[in-house]
Write a protein that binds this DNA or RNA. Structure first.
Lengths: 149, 149
DNA sequence: ACTTCATGCTTGCATGCGCAATCATAGCGC
DNA sequence: GCGCTATGATTGCGCATGCAAGCATGAAGT
């Protein structure tokens, strides 16, 4: 692929490291959020993403992209959250195919409660991972990522 | 948490970036491996991990850890691969509770076929991700990870 | 040897996921 | 307005996963 040969193995190893770190963190997040707030990581992500939008709403499509899930999974995810009143759907006025999703007040409250848990688990998971020699370089690299302005 | 306050949001953002990159890569890998070799990412990982062991075998438990899956998922994953003759189980002679798994010749052949696909997809996925401004820093960071000796 | 507890793997069950098919609305050519 | 295709979301279905319970083997105490 234009790049020297040994690079393939290097990329593969980088990917394994990334995947391992991701899996560990997600595992811990999943358990903690589920246990303490009844939220899966995907559900938390949806609320988080929506709350971070300036106008608090997104279309299903954009949501799928943001959480990297299939359309169908997104539909059902939104269903679950809507059933729990954490979320509202409403038709896009200008294009009646589109559907907007918006966090409700209850949703924001739950998110506010869950955020500290999320951050704490994340911190501890990262600290924990930093102790594993094969993961620690990636952890420190993560810490040095530039923040979007 | 011992660390200054704003760090929490920085960590959260790092995590979001990591998760997004991971999801995209895994998505592409999944599709390509499934289509071209009938393997899921987990299945590929198992074969890959086993083949990378010096003596080509691991216990179920170690395998669960290596691929970060639950015990039950590992059992069924190994079942599937065993049914396809890509893998063999055999009892641990010294502790009859333990079960070793070992790649078969067919398994190694399939892995050899799949590896180029895996590497190619990985490369293109990384190149693709490097074009997204929010992911590119992590991609370059990945490339700079030290290799284990 | 017998009980008790720990360890390793497997099974029952419920759930979330992706794919493909489907339905509804929009946009375009005529 | 009428077809035709494109786009957005939802539903049917099969499958992989996690949790918790279960079963088998090992280890330790008596």
């Amino acid at each position: 692929m234009g790049l020297p040969d040994g690079a393939a193995e290097a990329r593969a190893q980088g990917w394994r490291t990334l995947a391992a770190l991701h899996a560990r963190i997600e595992d811990e997040l999943e358990r903690a959020l589920q246990k303490q707030h009844g939220l899966s990581v995907s559900e938390y992500s949806v609320l988080d993403v929506l709350a971070r939008q300036d106008d608090y709403h997104l279309r299903m499509n954009q949501l799928s992209n943001a959480v990297v899930l299939s359309q169908s999974a997104t539909t059902r995810l939104v269903n679950r959250l809507e059933d729990r009143k954490l979320l509202q759907r409403y038709l896009c006025p200008t294009d009646r195919r589109g559907i907007y999703t918006e966090v409700t007040e209850a949703g924001r409250e739950l998110l506010d409660q869950a955020q500290p848990t999320h951050d704490a688990v994340l911190t501890s998971a990262l600290e924990h991972a930093a102790e594993l020699p094969e993961l620690s370089p990636l952890v420190t690299a993560l810490g040095k990522l530039p923040l979007t302005v």
